[in-house]
Simulated assay, not measured.
Amino acid sequence: MTTPSRPRRRALFAVLVVGLVALAWVTKEVVEGLLADGRAVDLGLLQLRLTYNTGVAFSLGAGLPTGVVLGVTGAVTLAIAVYAWFTVPAVPLIGLLGLAGVVAGAVTNLVNRALDAAVTDYFHTGWFPTFNLPDALLTVGVVLVVISTLLPEARDADAPRTQG
């Protein structure tokens, strides 16, 4: 199987990030419209329940000024995006998908925080902190990146080449 060229892999990465950000944003808008009156929707294992998180993961830093949270998460998001941009040409496809999920989730939450001074969360389990689709993209993305590092072709790519 041939791998796409560097520009094509970066283009695929960019398209995936933009598509996932759009999906996450549309999901947020739909859920906010659906739950604007304060009600919850039971989906079985999950409930749709609208909450706003002014902090970061698990509401850490919720008491910090919005500018501080926005600045730190913005810097981390930028660093991850730059790392991903330079890495996607060399990672297995599953790693590319994972990096796209991580960047899309981080960017969506960053924009949400910048516009609303909080992240809109809506997936509620009752036993885990309420989260949103960008959080799920981040989590699944990290898992895919880890899996990609365990794949034989990823390990072989890092091995020194010998001439024989």
Rank of each mutant, 00 (worst) to 15 (best):
113 R>Y: 06
50 L>I: 01
129 P>T: 08
121 D>T: 04
13 F>I: 00
6 R>S: 14
15 V>T: 14
76 V>Y: 05
160 P>L: 01
124 H>L: 03
46 L>Q: 03
3 T>I: 04
19 G>N: 11
100 A>Q: 09
90 A>D: 14
34 L>W: 12
22 A>G: 14
4 P>H: 00
110 L>H: 12
162 T>M: 00
19 G>M: 07
25 W>V: 06
132 N>W: 00
144 L>G: 10
139 T>C: 03
118 A>Y: 00
135 D>I: 05
114 A>S: 15
89 P>M: 03
58 F>V: 04
152 P>H: 07
40 A>P: 03
142 V>H: 04
49 R>Q: 15
1 M>E: 10
92 P>S: 02
6 R>E: 12
3 T>P: 01
154 A>E: 06
54 T>H: 13
137 L>V: 00
108 T>Q: 13
49 R>N: 13
54 T>D: 09
29 E>K: 13
51 T>P: 02
157 A>V: 00
52 Y>T: 10
126 G>W: 13
67 G>M: 06
96 L>Y: 01
14 A>P: 01
55 G>E: 09
61 G>Y: 12
53 N>Q: 08
142 V>Q: 05
159 A>W: 01
148 S>G: 15
114 A>P: 12
38 G>W: 06
116 D>P: 07
27 T>L: 06
17 V>A: 10
138 L>N: 04
38 G>N: 10
91 V>D: 01
36 A>G: 15
52 Y>E: 15
127 W>V: 14
142 V>W: 08
121 D>K: 03
79 A>R: 12
142 V>A: 13
11 A>N: 01
96 L>P: 02
43 L>Q: 07
132 N>G: 03
66 T>F: 05
162 T>Y: 00
106 A>M: 09
54 T>N: 08
78 L>W: 07
105 G>T: 12
21 V>F: 07
156 D>Q: 13
1 M>K: 08
98 G>Y: 08
107 V>Y: 08
139 T>H: 01
27 T>N: 07
16 L>K: 00
147 I>D: 04
89 P>W: 04
136 A>D: 02
150 L>T: 03
111 V>Q: 08
65 P>E: 13
6 R>M: 05
46 L>C: 03
